[in-house]
Design a protein around this nucleic acid. Sequence first.
DNA 1: CCTGATTTGTTGTAAATACAACAGAATTGT
DNA 2: ACAATTCTGTTGTATTTACAACAAATCAGG
Lengths: 226, 226
Amino acid sequence: MNQITKNDIEILQKTTLFLNMSEAEIREMLDCLNARKTTSLKNTMLLHYGDFCDSIGIVLHGTLHITREDFWGNSTLIAQCVPGDIFGETYAMSPNHIFEVNVTAITDSEILFLQLGKILSVCSTACTFHNRLIQNLLQAMASRNYLLSKKIEHITKRSTRDKLLSYLSNESRLAKSADFTIPLNRQQLADYLAVDRSAMSAELCRLRDEGILSFHKNEFHLYDVY
Amino acid sequence: MNQITKNDIEILQKTTLFLNMSEAEIREMLDCLNARKTTSLKNTMLLHYGDFCDSIGIVLHGTLHITREDFWGNSTLIAQCVPGDIFGETYAMSPNHIFEVNVTAITDSEILFLQLGKILSVCSTACTFHNRLIQNLLQAMASRNYLLSKKIEHITKRSTRDKLLSYLSNESRLAKSADFTIPLNRQQLADYLAVDRSAMSAELCRLRDEGILSFHKNEFHLYDVY
DNA sequence: CCTGATTTGTTGTAAATACAACAGAATTGT
DNA sequence: ACAATTCTGTTGTATTTACAACAAATCAGG
């Protein structure tokens, strides 16, 4: 079993799950959660489709790719996980605990696994932070849910134009202002909205020319016209 | 305060949250969760963007529409809720508890609200089913998460063809067979994949003609060709 | 069995999008 | 300051998709 370092703890302290807990508190929790720290070398698959999985993973170092293969064997990237990210909680919470994606380390990586069953049952040592942890886990899942719903909302729109307006409208709302800065560059935005970058770029300019919005780099402004 | 009827309990018993609990157990829980049953008349908005919301809703009767308005005031349907469905858990679990969508009763409806804070803190009466409820809530959120992720996976594909193959490939996997029946008709599938029905129908036939799959009504078969 | 309603497939056309290739702007590292 | 690299916008073309309108098939009820 690998030792959990002070550095690891610092990473955990930045995760939703252990936010604002002290090192001592976290170490107590890890004990209680039957934490296992594992290492995966570059380009090795650490979790496979069909694996039994009752634990959630937290990336400590490195980068993981979550992928899925279709009927014909074509692989698609679903998510990329970097230090601090949680993965597998959906499958760990599913009734049969069967993992339905592949997880591959694309660099040498360290991952911490926490046994979810231990989180759910009140632990015998009745550690003080148990409730906090449950609350944090629920919050993390709610937050993921929120992000997924938002993405679906944008991506479901039929045209590139409507996808852009849906996304920008939401960013404006977040900023509570018609002026706002988006955190994605053009390529990232195109990937997020599942459209072609150059076509999207052209559409943005059309929206600008029609006086619906204006932008300079990543700063946008929406005009209240109708 | 409206009375919770035996009929209401029967609906609750079919929800993920209270699955397999007895009437007595549920009534004890409801007390502990500060449950409020409310009535909404047809076409009234019962929750608004910006409302404070620390409770999750369960539909007992009627139909609700969850919608969102964009910057310019255009409204989009996000989800439809029918008896047994849970809603609002994402916002109830968010840090600031601010509701970001609108909920409208489109028929006369009855809704049960459960105060989420009560779920999270171990209740003073230490009711036996508290842990079960937390576990069920986590499972419900995981399950929603799973569905959202799946949808994103399909819908992110650039062409109608790839969306179809992604969806059908997954259904085949669920059925553990190259033969399977899908639970959606053509219009529903088109809506789910965010494409035009007739274009999708045409694409399905093209896939059939190319020998990639075959179908009869909602029964499909995928061919293992390359 | 018949009728009307619903679902599914078909086709042509207009519109939107992807794709490819490139030019200019901005950024980074030296 | 310069070169190399990345990012963004532009344009033309081929492809894909939406849309509309309709035909065929299927379904539901009387």
